[in-house]
Design a protein around this nucleic acid. Structure first.
Lengths: 113, 113
DNA sequence: CCTATATTCAACACATCAGTTGATCAAGGA
DNA sequence: TCCTTGATCAACTGATGTGTTGAATATAGG
């Protein structure tokens, strides 16, 4: 999946919730079913089920079928696209900062002459 | 700023809006005032002002003072912390995938014997 | 001083989100 | 077939987000 603007909306919104981030942390250690994912949380299974739907709609997880279970798997390529989006602006800014630092350094050297 | 759970909420929520992501893209090329940032958008200056507040509260930008203007500056260190958060889980998952691939490879070799 | 400019605050409407409860569906096992 | 288990759907509530308009604040400049 390549992220258009709406997909970026869904992906970042999906990460903007502590329960969903915690689900991602759990899934990074391996696949898990809805029941397994819900177990540590004090909220209803239905609420977790909806959180999982949000993560899936955002492309951050995929789901398979195992009988009546629907195991969830983290999708690292989606996470990679998010870091790429962020890094493109972070790196641009950092390069600009370094250029400014270089200019300031040059000015300082000229003052010393 | 180090990101606790609430700060991650604010930061990812701040990124979950196309207007705010566009503001970040603009600010990656250099600082800008509220009026300058608002100019390309078809919404009111007040709406942009609030978007900027959201970005600032999320720690993604900082603001200085220049007379009556309040220039905004992108904060690359905050962006870096977000990519770090994402990468910790992406890398864990990718390592796990590689281990599984290695096991499958071993099994295939044994089949060939 | 007085006015224009840059920005923010306040109050409101509307949409979306996160949680609940209760019902429903689908697959497995006795 | 009947019952249990895993998961989802539907409807509702309260909280939060995003936009608007109108008023207010603060600094610059004649």
């Amino acid at each position: 999946m390549t992220f258009d603007e709406a997909a970026l909306d869904r992906a970042f919104l999906a990460l903007a919730d502590p329960v969903r981030r915690s689900l991602i942390a759990r899934l990074s250690r391996g696949p898990a079913t809805v029941n397994e994912l819900a177990e540590p949380f004090p909220i209803t299974l239905q609420a977790i089920s909806r959180h999982i739907s949000v993560l899936e709609a955002a492309g951050l997880i995929t789901r398979t079928r195992d009988g009546q279970r629907r195991p969830c798997h983290l999708a690292p390529s989606a996470l990679e696209q998010l870091t790429s989006w962020i890094d493109q602006y972070r790196l641009t800014t950092e390069r600009r900062f370094r250029r400014i630092d270089a200019v300031l350094e040059t000015v300082k050297e000229q003052d010393h002459e």
